[in-house]
Nucleic acid binder design. Structure first.
Length: 296
DNA sequence: AACTACTCCTGGAGGC
DNA sequence: TGCCTCCAGGAGTAGT
């Protein structure tokens, strides 16, 4: 569930702690996780210095000296932890295994040794995440090939940009649309639900059904939930169950609990194969929506 | 174009 | 206890 706020929080932490460090060793414990471009391998990483940590959507890029970059995607359960002498220096991503617990874990697939004696551990219980090694010059092309939509928290993501996305995908239901990284880059299941709740829009509404006022509300809500998570801490959701901190998340992972606004029970439905949490009172169902218990 | 189903994987929860 | 099924959900792909 690392989504934009989780990856961005991690990026900021690693920018402070990892930049300037030189990699002195690499251990690949699960080969499929480490994918070097043709002609490249772990030997090319040893001796390289970390020069910058960047993010695009949910991708995290460690830019190294020698013109190389490591491109990470944490997918569902990936995490990166920088540790020295058993102490966490920076950590982010999926919170299992718990940050601060001894590493390597049995699901630690990649270990980078640094010149100050610290280690960067890539751990991923479900093994969906990966780390690519490629020339820095090719990173932009690679990311472009992924077809990522506008970066939500960048100046390019204006209300007009968002309206253009909605126009191009008029028939799409809001929930799958928000999850589609080609439409907008960065949202995942948790923050998509949060944004729809905040905008008071039912997840099954279609993009083309929104009034201009609703479009603006959704645009604001998307930005707000992400900025809130970056400011006050990311949501903690494990196995679909939320552990709210400071009342966040408000609806995701909280089936049957009261809506923070109206007090009615939060419902869970499946949309596009994914659990979707919403308040049927605050988020009115579309008229053509066969009952989810949300109308009437 | 948009939908569903399946795939990659493991671990935790609940039923019996 | 132990075996079974279901569920978690980012993203790619195939088929309708």
């Amino acid at each position: 569930m690392p989504e934009l706020p989780e990856v961005e929080t991690l990026r900021r932490a690693l920018s402070r702690t990892l930049v300037g460090r030189t990699i002195t060793g690499v251990e690949v414990r699960l080969p499929k996780v480490f994918q070097p471009a043709p002609g490249l391998g772990t030997r090319d990483v040893v001796g390289a210095r970390v020069e910058a940590v960047r993010r695009r959507g949910k991708y995290l890029v460690l830019e190294l000296s020698d013109g190389l970059s490591l491109v990470f995607h944490l997918r569902l359960t990936g995490q990166l932890v920088l540790m020295r002498d058993g102490e966490v220096i920076a950590a982010g991503g999926h919170p299992v295994p718990e940050f601060g617990s001894p590493l390597p874990h049995k699901a630690t697939h990649l270990i980078f040794d640094l010149d100050d004696g610290s280690h960067l551990y890539f751990t991923d219980i479900r093994r969906f995440g990966f780390c690519l090694l490629m020339p820095t010059a090719e990173v932009a092309t690679y990311l472009a090939e992924q077809g990522l939509g506008p970066e939500v928290l960048s100046p390019e993501f204006t209300l007009e940009t968002f309206r253009e996305v909605l126009r191009q995908r008029r028939a799409a239901r809001l929930k799958p649309l928000l999850l589609d990284q080609r439409a907008i880059a960065g949202l995942g299941n948790i923050y998509a639900d949060e944004a729809l709740w905040l905008a008071r829009l039912h997840p099954l509404r279609t993009a083309g059904s929104l009034t201009p006022e609703e479009e603006a509300r959704l645009y604001q809500a998307i930005r707000e939930v992400l900025e809130h998570a970056l400011t006050y801490g990311v949501a903690r959701v494990v196995g679909g169950r939320a552990t709210p901190r400071a009342g966040f998340p408000r609806v995701h992972g909280r089936e049957g609990e009261p809506c923070p606004v109206c007090g009615g029970p939060i419902e869970r439905i499946r949309v596009g194969g994914r659990s979707t949490y919403f308040c049927p009172r605050c988020q009115q169902a579309p008229h053509d929506c066969a009952s989810t218990g949300a109308d009437r």
